[in-house]
Design a binder for these strands. Sequence first.
DNA 1: CTGAAAGCGCTTACAG
DNA 2: CTGAAAGCGCTTACAG
Lengths: 343, 343
Amino acid sequence: MTKTPAGHSEADPASRPRRVTASDVAKQAGVSRSAVSRAFDPNAYLDRHKREIILKTAVKLGYRPNALAASLQGMRSNLVGVIIGDMTNQYDAEFAAMLLSRLNAANKWPLLVGGSMPVTEEAIMAVLGYPLDAMIVRGGSLDAHLFDDCAKLNIPLIFSGRIVDAPFADCVCCRNAEGTAQAVDLLLRSGHKGLGYIGGPGTWSSDRERLSGVTSTLAQNGLSLVGQVQSDFSYEGGAQAAASLLADDRVDGLICANDAMALGALSYVRNHTSKTVPDDVAIVGFDDVSLASWPDFNLTTVRNPLGTMIDEVLRLLEARLADPMRLSETVMINPILKERGTH
Amino acid sequence: MTKTPAGHSEADPASRPRRVTASDVAKQAGVSRSAVSRAFDPNAYLDRHKREIILKTAVKLGYRPNALAASLQGMRSNLVGVIIGDMTNQYDAEFAAMLLSRLNAANKWPLLVGGSMPVTEEAIMAVLGYPLDAMIVRGGSLDAHLFDDCAKLNIPLIFSGRIVDAPFADCVCCRNAEGTAQAVDLLLRSGHKGLGYIGGPGTWSSDRERLSGVTSTLAQNGLSLVGQVQSDFSYEGGAQAAASLLADDRVDGLICANDAMALGALSYVRNHTSKTVPDDVAIVGFDDVSLASWPDFNLTTVRNPLGTMIDEVLRLLEARLADPMRLSETVMINPILKERGTH
DNA sequence: CTGAAAGCGCTTACAG
DNA sequence: CTGAAAGCGCTTACAG
């Protein structure tokens, strides 16, 4: 019983079948191994006819160069690590969807860490075992010594949603304080002065910035927050937070650190109180997820411009790959107030 | 000027910096290259003291074995291709989030193709250049010759949301017709007999199955669909479809091929008609995305059990990796009717 | 327990 | 234009 190259038909059933290799193609096409390599490099010198034959037998055999073996020769792996903690969060899910397809379009292949569970350090370490061209980190908390690990492995880092000061690390971030400042201004103008704030856990800088935009703007107007609760960025959390804040009758406006919580708050007011939005209580979110503009919610919010954010991430990525030694760059993005029906 | 191993400090600024290698560690630790390899294999024989030293200098240098070089030796790459067309779709986004983190937990690293744009064949071809352990395909359409390509490369395929009959390809799928049949039964029992159906584009088998569950159940009751429109699985599409269907006064119930369209339909009825839900019009969705249970919607729907689906995908994956030659397996999952407020 | 050596699949000077 | 050869970083028999 002869073994067919890379075929599973006659191979040992227990053993893992092999991938077709350049040698297989070379043998089959009656050319040298080098010729096969050259056939896949448009710029390489190779007899036109020979190239044709090689490409044809490659298709027949289902051969494609193993990108990883190629990466050992100093070629880029085109693998990009992407760390996204919680895609359960609407905004992060939208971010992920767009980022991933944009990476694909740029011939970069995202290796994803995260999803619906908190990202473990083990997971990051494991993915660092691959020769990543770069690593993109969305929001969240991340142990500082990850930076060291990446630096030692010469894997550039690109952060979105937080600012990190490290060599060879680039950042793109929203001007969070400015966004919530605009939201406060808006509520003040529409006559809401008893403001409550629904924040996140406060562990991320973006979260703290959003809060500071609120407090400083109020201070400028001789006011201060009537109430404030730390929640968890979820719809349910927002509803609960609204319940506790609205127990205080002075509260007539809710600023929320993201849309999910704002939506939860809105739902709470509608379904569990006799107050109306926006007359009795105004609500403003942050992010502008697609849900926010649904007529069911029509939520006034601060837009955290997704497209711009991702454009910049990709630009930074290309720039870093083109010049690994360039100075770190941080891009600040202006949020945009979207006035809809809840203020 | 001496070159530090893998350091960027003294390297040529233009050149791409190197990764630390096992040789670097061996040199630094004063041991053989093989010893370094062995230090990372818990089962390998190696002097305890020596292993300690090696591991310590590995940490110092930031070394980790290049998983790709290892995969050339016949080790698994632990790379799994994941094709998800449109994560903009709520259910697919939830599916992606859960699948990706479950893969991480199983020490598999998802290489993602797709996101928010249609998946191009080029993208799939490109990702096939990596030595994938397997490929997971979620829903959607996919050219048949992809199967050939994967088969030739010996990359097993696992499908979720559609059934494909190919050697070495496993599937997990919802009993779609059964789900919509239950939905129709429910509406019939609650006195809604003038049913309209809002479907998808009809290009996927799951879509067609859902429709057939509706029509056959109606037929069993001596009834037939009053109206039917092909839409696009989106919220906006659902709203439009509802508008056109409800122009016919006989329609008092809407069965939708997914939740997004059902939510759009619900919103249309509430905001653009004088009808009430569920008395004048009942609405049933399919999937049971997290939004469906929000009090804002409280949508009656057919649950397409995400957790079970993904459990099975992972089980099938492990089984296939353990025995590449095993017979194809197809797992059918029972949908569960969730009775809420819109019927 | 250990090091030298072969080999995984690839690219790329090198010498025709 | 072309093939033989070196080398990428790794694992794993092989022979001590």
